[in-house]
Simulated assay, not measured.
Amino acid sequence: MDADPYAAERPNRRPASTHTWPAGRRIPALGEDSSWQGIPFQIRRMGPEQLPFVVAEHLKYFPDGFFARLGPSFLTAYCRTYLSSPHAAAYIAERDGEPVGFLVGVVAPEAHRRHVLEVHRRKLLVCAAAGLAVRPRLTTHFLRTRLPRYCRKLLPGRPADQAAAGPRGTTAVLAHVAVVEHARSRGIGDALIDRFVEDAADAGCARVSLVTALGDDGAGPYYERRGWVYRGETRTPDGRQLATYDLPLPLGLGTETR
């Protein structure tokens, strides 16, 4: 999906696994050993040392996003915003000490947007300008489809979205989830999603939202099997059609799963 630092980009590729955790299974704590089909792995908070892996996998599995097209330097700066923001979540999945998957998301979108503007705006602007300078066709596309909207979001004093009024009722956004090819179908993608859903519930969010591509490239059936609810379709400035899904979060979900 068309994305910027103030509204997280969502996954537009099929998730790595179609397995679901058994009903009533406790979600393992961060860093705790987990396994699926006998394959051990761990879910940890993402650190700066994992950014090269995350950026490489992002470029591999989400190459059509506007931020990915700006190049690795901008994408690294963009992914770093998830590490410093108290309103975002970033996880890495490891097997035998090696990263095999990641997930990034936002539990308070408006508060995260403000954090990005206050802390990362200069770096993102510099990296974006450098990326556009060597990509004239992308620059033309940016000027035609995105410049006015981005300028409005960069203006100081922009009124806060209603979601910033309080945690209850806020919609968390699952931005990206990916698992390397050789580690797929082992429940790692499910574990990453479950971890984010639990943390969103613990933060008081009422639901989690994402978008995925329509058609065979999308993951709609996967999310529907996991209880996500189809909410409609959108079209990006690039003409891609996306389906929106929500997962309602009952009060207390985060504590009930432990």
Score class of each variant (00 low, 15 high):
4 D>H: 15
5 P>Y: 02
6 Y>D: 01
10 R>K: 08
14 R>D: 03
20 T>H: 08
22 P>L: 13
25 R>H: 11
32 E>C: 10
34 S>N: 12
38 G>S: 08
43 I>S: 10
46 M>D: 03
55 V>P: 03
56 A>K: 12
56 A>S: 13
59 L>K: 06
64 D>R: 06
66 F>R: 07
68 A>K: 02
69 R>I: 05
72 P>R: 13
73 S>A: 15
76 T>W: 06
76 T>D: 11
78 Y>A: 09
79 C>T: 04
82 Y>R: 11
84 S>V: 09
85 S>I: 04
89 A>S: 12
90 A>F: 06
92 I>N: 05
93 A>T: 03
94 E>N: 04
101 G>D: 07
103 L>K: 10
103 L>I: 05
104 V>G: 06
106 V>I: 14
108 A>R: 15
109 P>N: 12
114 R>P: 00
118 E>A: 12
119 V>L: 02
120 H>T: 02
121 R>I: 03
125 L>G: 07
129 A>W: 03
130 A>C: 13
130 A>S: 14
133 A>V: 07
139 T>S: 14
140 T>K: 11
142 F>Y: 15
146 R>Y: 12
149 R>Y: 14
149 R>C: 05
150 Y>P: 00
152 R>I: 01
153 K>Q: 12
155 L>M: 15
155 L>T: 03
161 D>Y: 04
167 P>Q: 11
168 R>V: 09
168 R>A: 13
168 R>S: 11
171 T>N: 04
173 V>S: 09
174 L>P: 01
175 A>F: 01
177 V>S: 09
178 A>I: 06
180 V>W: 01
181 E>H: 14
183 A>S: 15
188 I>K: 06
188 I>T: 04
195 R>D: 11
196 F>T: 05
197 V>Q: 08
202 D>T: 09
207 R>Q: 14
208 V>R: 03
209 S>M: 06
210 L>C: 01
214 L>M: 08
218 G>Q: 01
224 E>K: 10
225 R>I: 02
225 R>D: 07
226 R>V: 06
227 G>T: 08
232 G>I: 03
243 A>Y: 00
245 Y>V: 00
247 L>H: 14
250 P>M: 11
252 G>Y: 05
